[in-house]
Design a protein around this nucleic acid. Sequence first.
DNA 1: TGATCTTACGTTTAGCGTAACAATA
DNA 2: TATTGTTACGCTAAACGTAAGATCA
Lengths: 285, 285
Amino acid sequence: MLDLTELEQLTTFADTGTLSMAAEKLHISQPTITRTMQHLEETFGVSLFVRGKNKIMLNDTGLKAVEQARQLLSAADNALKTVKAFDKSLHTITISSCAPAPLWYVLPALSSAYPDMTIASSIKNVPAIYEDLDSEFCQLAILPHNIQYDHYVNIPFLKENLSVCVAASHALSDKSSVTFSDLNGFNFLLGSEIGFWDEMCRVRMPASRFLVQTNQFEFEELVRESSLPCFTTNLAKDSQNLLADRIKIPVTDPDANVTYYLACHSQLISYAEVLKRIDVNDIKE
Amino acid sequence: MLDLTELEQLTTFADTGTLSMAAEKLHISQPTITRTMQHLEETFGVSLFVRGKNKIMLNDTGLKAVEQARQLLSAADNALKTVKAFDKSLHTITISSCAPAPLWYVLPALSSAYPDMTIASSIKNVPAIYEDLDSEFCQLAILPHNIQYDHYVNIPFLKENLSVCVAASHALSDKSSVTFSDLNGFNFLLGSEIGFWDEMCRVRMPASRFLVQTNQFEFEELVRESSLPCFTTNLAKDSQNLLADRIKIPVTDPDANVTYYLACHSQLISYAEVLKRIDVNDIKE
DNA sequence: TGATCTTACGTTTAGCGTAACAATA
DNA sequence: TATTGTTACGCTAAACGTAAGATCA
């Protein structure tokens, strides 16, 4: 039976060229490597080296053995990772979302439905979410459109409607609705970690500049103290009444009014079932 | 680092269902298996079993680990075989031939050109020889036609011309040449191990019957003592003058007059080069 | 009671490192 | 003389088997 530890010594020898350097690299003594190389020849049943009085080199068979050893070591590493990842997948629900708002509803719902599970979530752009689905890195995806993926269920979830929040003194304050082209050119306060909204703002309002605030406290302070317009949505919770003094004007463009879709492997449809039952009003008080 | 011996115990446990039976199968004690399973869980860093007071079963992760273990063990086995086979291929020349005659010239020539090499040869039908080339089981192939194989050289080698040997009293004895259709219906003595000639005889003379002699001595005895026609070729050595009393009539059909082609990997063209220099007359005395 | 798994214990062995040796550049 | 690979020697730690214990059918 091959021993992977021995094979690792073999590949290290192949990498370094001398037994001494391999020994140093692996933090073991040379005699150990010497013995291992001898033992490997026994195991393979063939000669792997050409030996001089005080030098040793791989022969053609040895090179072949190194090639096989590398493959095997990498396969072993993969096996280990595969099992660990599988185990993790049994104990964690990983969610990749295109925007933060759906997570405000999804995370508490999943936590209470699966109290023993670890819930991991991240906000990513849409292509990255597709990669996560492909690699099965995430079990649940939240996308701003529906998808057709084999073996995946795909259900409409929440609707999010964008509004702009302007001060009463603002040029647009008397409008009852606006479009991105109305807004294009104005500068805005923007939160970070807002998912695909960020890109949408930059694409649809290319003449605008966006003051992205990484820190939540600073963002709120600026909303309070400045007259810079910002955005809100029907899903946003304004628990501090930050926007009380502002006028909320709906943005009517179709892509400013998003339906989120939940995608998950059909084997894991129970996750989606749990989330279907979410009543938005339960949470949004 | 994973230990293949431990993985083997894991798969054996998966196969047998109990630690005791696995231990028995592997000729080790149960406590050893118990400890190994515990150690495997440490190595993987995850739990692989559900344990009762006196029972143990694989959990889902455990099943996944078994799956990975099987793949890894089989990969390790393949690696071992690959290296051994490679080493063997460096020390042996394996030849697959469609007929015996070319080997009479090829084997001595290779033996003297490569005295340190083991020369292994076998006579096979043509499809099997193609498989040998594909799998690189043989380094040298002798076929009754040329082939177009990537990275293979393919050179014409010997010509073999079939004649039928009949007694003077035979109905065909006054003919200066014959075709298979002339011969069809007569019965023949045939040696065994004559490669593709055997099939050719049966295909081209379907009405004939062939008395195949496995034993060389018995074959010669029958040639001497019977008047049954048999075959010879320009390459056959009749050292005992067995055919002295018989009349040799060439068979004129194109497929009874074969050109053998030597095929070998272009990296091993030196083998073919050695054989190109064979002078048939050197050997056929 | 027989079968199963785990733990405990004592022994063995196999692997390791240090040291000594031989050979090279 | 410094470096490299092999061999010898002694020790340690890990692995094994036997035995004992616990639980279940």
